[in-house]
């Protein structure tokens, strides 16, 4: 398995995974979306809400705020040894505001300084003069497969690596004009695509369709994948990818352990 990172920022990553099976690539993609443990607000104790939003509406908005946390130190509530709640499975955050003001996710006061909303500027509700909001939000660990509030990967996808080859090109330039991505260039021996530009190819086959002499073959390398990974901020893109493969490993190790007793 080989990995070449093309782009890596806090919330976005682009990399080429080669020499891997399509099942692994798809498993990794699905794991990033649905299997990575994240923290999200699941319960709200409302002490005062005189804002224009119903309690339930407010609850939904709060639940969808991404929270940055080290989930290795927390356990999902159903796996926790405690009876109801404890610091190992639950994080409490309080929010207190009085109008006139816009309430933002950054107004939360967390009981754990390491755990806080990943963005401070998510608007929750606008309070008019005299309106009040006072609540305690309880966050628990969960997985994206159960509810989108726990989905750490936002836009995670891959495509197979394009392989476009030119044979005996007659330099008619029609493919250069047909390419919607403008990646085909005229080289000394005919039309060609630079290695870097090949990543842009969408396998639309427009070039092969306009070629009068069938000199172009559009194919794909089914053992290589171009991944685009975007995180909601609860993890950095790098952590998200690592967490996804750890989640997959946890599954296979878990089943192996159960099979020992068969």
């Amino acid at each position: 398995m080989k990995i070449e990172v093309l782009e890596m920022s806090d919330r976005f990553a682009k990399f080429v995974l080669s020499d891997a099976s399509i099942a692994f690539a798809n498993g990794l993609r699905r794991a990033m979306l649905a299997e990575v443990p994240t923290l999200a607000i699941t319960e709200v104790n409302l002490y005062n809400n005189t804002s224009v939003l119903y309690d339930e509406q407010l609850g939904l908005r709060l639940s969808l705020i991404p929270i940055k946390a080290n989930t290795d130190e927390l356990v999902p509530k159903e796996e926790c040894m405690c009876d109801d709640n404890c610091p190992a499975c639950e994080v409490s955050m309080t929010l207190s505001a009085e109008g006139p003001k816009m309430v933002y996710s950054g107004d939360f006061v967390s009981s754990d300084p390491e755990i806080f909303p990943s963005d401070e500027n998510i608007p929750i509700v606008e309070l008019k003069d005299g309106q009040q909001l006072f609540l305690e939000a309880l966050a628990h660990v969960g997985h994206g497969k159960n509810h989108s509030r726990w989905q750490a990967g936002i836009a995670c996808g891959y495509k197979t690596y394009p392989v476009v080859t030119f044979h005996n090109c007659d330099k008619c330039r029609s493919c250069i004009e047909a390419c919607p991505k403008d990646i085909i260039q005229m080289g000394p021996s005919g039309a060609e695509i630079q290695d870097n530009d090949m990543l842009e190819c969408t396998l639309c086959r427009s070039c092969a369709d306009v070629c009068g002499i069938n000199a172009i073959t559009v194919d794909q390398d089914e053992r290589a994948f171009i991944f685009n990974v975007e995180s909601d901020g609860s993890y950095s893109a790098e952590e998200l990818i690592q967490q996804a493969s750890k989640a997959l490993k946890k599954k296979s190790d878990g089943m192996l352990e159960v099979l020992e007793h068969f």
Partner: peptide, 27 residues
């Protein structure tokens, strides 16, 4: 069949380790 599944699962864990290794190295 159980024996065969066991081998497949070890392969899967190995694949994940290989990925994590390769990824950590490039990052």
């Amino acid at each position: 069949p159980i024996e065969v599944i066991r081998d497949a699962l070890s392969n899967m864990s190995q694949e994940c380790d290989e990925f994590l290794d390769a990824f950590s190295k490039t990052v």
